[in-house]
Nucleic acid binder design. Structure first.
Lengths: 217, 217, 217, 217
DNA sequence: GATGAATGAGGCTTCATTCAT
DNA sequence: GATGAATGAAGCCTCATTCAT
């Protein structure tokens, strides 16, 4: 469906299957024979499209990183202020991770993996450099604290990665929404030169709601 | 307790060697034969002390997690306020990670690994529950925002893990110190019900310095 | 005959490429895919012309053996004496091997190879039976020792195969010529009923020159 | 029996089995699994003693070459003249090849094989350099023609390799003896500065007998 | 306690061959 | 005739684990 080119049927099946299995079982925990079997192709076919198992995961990594990078940028250009832009990125990140839990976990798991080539890591990184630019802009405008931009980005990325699993573990959609708002509020207040006591980074401009009295755990 | 026995020098050699190799090369990337060779013992010896390779990494994981948990708690009891306590934990975390990069990377790498048993993961987690208590205390006192405590802890943990590598990548000790202060300031401002524009969480009570003119990445 | 058809240019390209690759890399060291790639045809094309890889090398072997046999016989009919005929064969052998090192090495390499069918080996052998007849004639005439003709032929063949690489390893044409004369002299003296101290088997009837003072290895 | 060291039971079994199989079926025609099975050991055992299949054949090649070299030299020191020494080598060569047909064929087959390392080839070669010295001595003494010594050695080696299979193909011991004498006579006459019409290179100094009238084929 | 030779299941990859286009 | 994607059997080698010494 999402792959129109009928010529790459099997190649895509391999990629999609590998993504799931690698995430679930790790790189070494996933025999190539298992990938081909699950993908419904012969063992040799995998090696026709990817010279080695490493090349397979590398291709996968680049693809997922590129998709994620694109997802984060969605609609950012339409926002007017740096704050709105950064909030947009944060929301995009949470939305993408929530909608693509497999891809998100894959990215997390292989972010520092030696199975992925250095080049792929660099290329993958490049899709996220715009965030650092955004932070620099904010600092220049005086609305973000004058801290080391790379450090701020690291924290942002790490935090978003910490927020998402927590949200995904929550079944109730309303609670999910709330957790997302709280997470983003945390981040913006960490960044902001003039943090706001009561307002946060959410689409409606509404304050992040407090945890209700019915809150448990 | 019974592991303190100095007679166990071979056992210790195996553990220490395994820690390094697992971190550098991964679980599957490290044959048991390589561990025993590097540790200077025979292949059979490893299996005398650890029934399986999994038991070895499990033991290692529990040990490191326990060490890390203890490190985080150091001196927390002596602090008077919740804020001071949390700041203390943050500083401890950064200090420990910086001083034990191998152990820190090991922990990160195997935090969600299937090679480590579920029990070990749970036991490991337990060493960090006190932090959630601390956060709850802060919320109760009204100095921390009334957000989901588990979420806040997740973000804290993830952020600290994001800060540390950034610091370790910096050779200059002064810059390191600065980055640590900025990182902690970020976190406290994310947490705080009444964030402070200009003050942060540092031992001397001194404001986190802005990036000076002499300070460009 | 029907192989002369110029339409078979792909078939010829495959044969020529295979000859080179088989010689350089051996039978198992040369994938059919490599042959077709180097020959500029598709993998399937090779199997259109040759049912199996074995059939390919078999065809090649027959072709080369037949060429070599024909080369050895060149001009033999024009010689008058048995000695002259045998010398002619020897010169032809060395000349052919020197001019077709690839084909020569191919023949040597696959002379006893199991990849080539028994039939092909027998057919190949048949091109060289005339030499044994020549030897028998010489024995009958009393100019060749009355030794087992098959043994003499084996030695002749083996020796020529030993001489040729030595010559090919020598760049200087004069030295080459000299080595050829020395080799043939050796052989003739081994065969001859009345060996000659100072004369050998060369076109001009000239004595095989001793290694002159200017001639050190 | 011939391997006293009981520690190397399995290693020797592997070597001996590999020698036979490699000769019969070629290098690529012999799976390592077949070698271990026939040798009565586990697949892993082969790789415990030999890191790769190449290392196995390399070891084998060095061993056989060294044995063959030693066999050729047997008793040479006791002979007085160069002629006697060279004849001794010739007889030794034929005797060894006849007594060790497996080893002889192995040597022949892998003499120029790319599976054997260059180093092994060089080391193997070194065991036969004494023959070239012998030839030089003969030339210096004037009893061997002043031809290129390396060429003469090449022919000698190639010829001996041509003689042996012929002898091995002959079941009758008397005929074998005769063929051996004829072959050596051929070689000596090829070498000799003053070839002898009627005498050859044999232990008793007796002339090489002519083929009897009962000779067939 | 300690050793290291021995095991064999299982992993990655190659490659001759087929067949739908 | 010609193509090249697809197949799957089979090969080399690794490595956790055992056990006799």
């Amino acid at each position: 469906m999402n792959r129109m080119d009928p010529v790459h049927d099997k190649r895509d099946a391999i990629l999609e299957t590998a993504l799931v299995l690698f995430t679930e079982r790790g790189f070494y925990g996933t025999p190539t024979a298992m990938i081909s079997r699950e993908a419904g192709v012969a063992t040799g076919t995998l090696f026709f499209y990817f010279k080695t198992k490493e090349e397979l995961i590398d291709t996968l990594y680049r693809q997922v990183k590129s998709e994620a990078g694109a997802a984060l940028k969605t609609g950012v250009g339409e926002e007017q202020t740096v704050k709105a832009k950064i909030c947009r990125v944060g929301k995009n990140a949470i939305a993408w991770a929530t909608a693509n839990p497999g891809r998100f976990r894959f990215m997390e798991q292989f972010a520092h993996s030696p199975f992925v080539s250095t080049t792929a890591h660099e290329v993958g990184m490049s899709h996220f450099l715009f965030l650092q630019e955004l932070v620099r802009d904010g600092i220049r405008e005086g609305i973000i604290r004058d801290y080391d931009p790379a450090l701020l980005c690291s924290i942002l990325a790490a935090s978003l990665a910490g927020i998402s699993p927590r949200i995904m573990a929550t079944p109730d959609p309303e609670k999910r929404e709330l957790l997302g708002q709280q997470g983003l509020a945390f981040l913006w207040n960490g960044l902001a030169a003039r943090p706001e006591t009561d307002e946060s980074c959410n689409a409606t401009g509404v304050t992040a709601k407090r945890k209700g009295a019915d809150d448990h755990d």
